[in-house]
Simulated assay, not measured.
Amino acid sequence: MPTALRLFRYVAIAEACSWAGLLVGMFFKYIVESGDLGVKVFGPIHGLLFVLYVTGVLAAARTARWSLGTIVLGLACAVPPFTSLWFERRMLGGVREPVTV
C-alpha cells in the first residue's frame, strides 16, 4: 500500500477516536457539568487531527486518482462524527497491508 494511503487510513481512524474523546468531554462539560478538562484536552487534539485528515484526503486522492466528487465526499466526511471511518472503509476497505513476519 502506498504511504499516502496508509497515512490516510491511520489519520482517519485517529480522527474518529478524537471525535469520541471530544464527545465524551462535551458530555461531562455540558450534561454532567463536572468541568471542561475533556474538552480542553481533546479539543486541540481533534483540531489537529481534523487538519491532518483533510490533508490525508488530498494526498490519498492524488495517489489513488480519486474523482472530484470523491474528494468532496471525503472532505465532507471530516465534519460529522465518525464518518471518516465510513469513508476510509469505503475507499480503502479492499486494500490490505501485507503481513510481514
Rank of each mutant, 00 (worst) to 15 (best):
R62Q: 14
A64V: 09
G94L: 01
I45A: 12
T70R: 09
F42M: 10
A76Y: 11
G56H: 00
V95W: 13
T55F: 15
L68Y: 14
W66R: 02
G43F: 03
A78F: 11
V41S: 00
F50D: 01
G35V: 04
I71M: 12
G38C: 00
P44Y: 04
T55C: 15
R90H: 13
I45G: 09
V41R: 03
V41F: 06
G56C: 03
D36N: 13
V57S: 05
L49N: 03
L52H: 09
V95C: 11
C77G: 03
S67W: 08
F87R: 03
F82V: 06
V39K: 00
R65K: 11
T55Q: 15
T83N: 12
A59M: 14
S34P: 08
V79M: 11
F50P: 01
V79P: 09
C77I: 06
F42D: 06
M91A: 11
L49S: 03
G47C: 01
T55L: 15
T63M: 14
I45K: 07
V51F: 11
A59G: 10
I45T: 06
S67Q: 10
V41H: 03
A76W: 13
V54H: 05
Y53K: 05
I71A: 08
V72H: 10
R89K: 15
T83E: 13
G93H: 08
V79T: 13
L48K: 11
A59V: 14
T70N: 09
P80F: 08
Y53I: 07
G94H: 06
E88S: 09
P44E: 00
A61D: 06
A61Y: 06
V95G: 09
S84F: 01
Y53M: 02
R65D: 07
V39W: 00
S34R: 13
A59I: 12
P80T: 01
F87Y: 02
L85R: 05
V41G: 04
G74K: 01
G56V: 00
K40D: 11
V57C: 06
V79D: 08
V54P: 05
I71V: 15
G43K: 00
I71E: 06
A61V: 08
L37S: 08
V54F: 02
G56T: 02
T83H: 12
A64S: 11
F42W: 13
L58T: 07
A60E: 03
R65E: 06
R89W: 12
V51E: 07
V39Y: 01
W66D: 02
R90N: 12
L75F: 07
H46G: 04
L75Y: 05
V57Y: 10
T55D: 15
I71K: 07
V57K: 08
P80Y: 06
P81I: 04
